[in-house]
Amino acid sequence: MNYFLLQRFFGLFWALIQQICFVWLKRTHDNLAFEKKNHGVFYLTQCAIFLFLSLLCFARDLGFDPAVGAASTSWRSLYPWQGTITVCCVVVCAAMVYFDAMLVVYAHRLHRIYRGGVAAARKTLPVDVAVFALVFGFAGLYLVGSEHAVAALDIPVIGYIRIRRFFIQISNLSYVILEVSAACIFYRLYREMQKRAEVTERA
């Protein structure tokens, strides 16, 4: 089976699951913290984001290749098809890291509300924007930096593939850190809930 097809298919699957978890955690948080009932705009935005990711991944199969389209520009003059794969990988990996990071952020917020009550809820927008800027800023810098390096150093195509794979390893490391953080937060929440449940039972 085609390697890139597998990569795209599985990448989208992991991203979708992480996005669902993030959406439901945010929904739970907003219901608790702001008594918010209508999440229509948020759901639509998330659907649009996933549709964008899917279209980007299968753009070439649908007859539109963004990197080949930009091949005549200075930004991307080498290996147009490899450029498409790189753009897909970087965007999908960054999206997965972003959803995972937001999952951790919202799990932490829920834990804080559990400990301190609704009064412990704070403004969410600044941190949400900061996480987005941090993840996609780093991904963008890596993409631009590697493209410049490839153009300047005349790296062969195998080297270009290795640079992309290195980015995937960095994102894998981020997932491990984020998953362990999520596990720690859920563990602490579980321990506190268990202790309180025991106290209530005794009373």
């Binding site: 930096g145 590697s146 410049h148 390096a149 490839v150 300047a152 150093l153 790296i155 062969p156 195998i158 080297g159 270009y160 290795r162 640079i163 290195f166």
Partner: peptide, 9 residues
């Protein structure tokens, strides 16, 4: 940055 990317390549 270029030496870093060259090293990876």
């Amino acid at each position: 940055m270029s030496p870093f990317f060259l090293w990876i390549a």
